[in-house]
Write a protein that binds this DNA or RNA. Sequence first.
DNA 1: GTGATTATTTGACTTGTGTCAAATTTCTGC
DNA 2: GCAGAAATTTGACACAAGTCAAATAATCAC
Lengths: 192, 192
Amino acid sequence: MMNPYIKRIKDLSHQLDPQILTELEGGFVDKKFSKGACLLRPGQICTSHLLVKEGVARKYYTHNDKEITTEIYFHDDVAVSLDSYIMRKPADLYIEALTELEVTLIDYSQFHKVKKKYAEVMMLDKMFIEYYAVWFEQRLKEFQTMDASQRYLNLLEKEPRIVRLLPVTIIASYLNVSLETLSRIRSKIASE
Amino acid sequence: MMNPYIKRIKDLSHQLDPQILTELEGGFVDKKFSKGACLLRPGQICTSHLLVKEGVARKYYTHNDKEITTEIYFHDDVAVSLDSYIMRKPADLYIEALTELEVTLIDYSQFHKVKKKYAEVMMLDKMFIEYYAVWFEQRLKEFQTMDASQRYLNLLEKEPRIVRLLPVTIIASYLNVSLETLSRIRSKIASE
DNA sequence: GTGATTATTTGACTTGTGTCAAATTTCTGC
DNA sequence: GCAGAAATTTGACACAAGTCAAATAATCAC
């Protein structure tokens, strides 16, 4: 189920020296958000990674009053506006709690210090971003090669939790189709 | 013109210790390709970065016999199949010379050795991938929010060299529209 | 230059998907 | 359980963009 590269990152991070882990955890803060709460909004600078412990969140931006959902986070996923985080500039998107949500905030500056000190942490961070880039490349390919139905079926196969747990509005905005089109796709599939 | 983040990466790489530069260059090999030559094809493992010194190249994949161009490289751009390179698995795309081409191959294993030895090189590599991820995110956004004409106008503004120097076939496949549609878009713009 | 090939444009038609509006179903609070 | 709100479905229509085919323009070999 889990991507093998993500698995490798996890395995390696569990093998880190306890001393390093302690230093890393010095920059961790646990926080709870209620459903609908906004963890990041346009104009704010994203100064931490958000590690989801419990609940579901999403990242989205708006364009012509339409919401476009770009990522959906479940347990153990990491939410961050990479653009805002690395360039240290204001974000142009929202990160929102879709349910009651518990996250661990991994503060930029503490994480940065530990990365500078320990090459293996820098390496893990690099691996995380590599995975992120490959994920984006894959997702772009899906938009370039699949029509709406194919994207839906693909999502159903690769991310069944999204289809199972989230309202049509969110699923549609993640697939970048209108509510109505998604509804028609589903009824067509059901009638086959 | 140049992206500020890319500029920062370049500046930092010019400030590297001469000793490090020498070690890095130990893994460099210059190579020439003739127009139409293939630098990488599906099934091969991408074991180096290709730094373009002279000429133009592109990356593309095929889907239902249609070519989809994902990146176009000019002087100083770096071509690599990230997926194949980091996972060390066979590529599923082509990298092709669009003109007579001169590149510097940066070999994986030598580069890897130097990265392990010098944290600043690892850092630069990480910054490169961060940029790549942000670039992909941006490109995905373009496909999600712009129609064919907007994508063309956007390309004209952001990457005029592509529009100016390359045949319609390539431009169309980079914009993910048909030849005919691109042709109509251009004539419509010309008539305004 | 001339003919042959290739690239580009134009035309006619089809289709996927969006939009707006209305109907229906599901969810909520009380 | 019921009223009202919200979410989802269905219908009618419009339009962007694809496809196939033919015409025209540009390029190349000799």
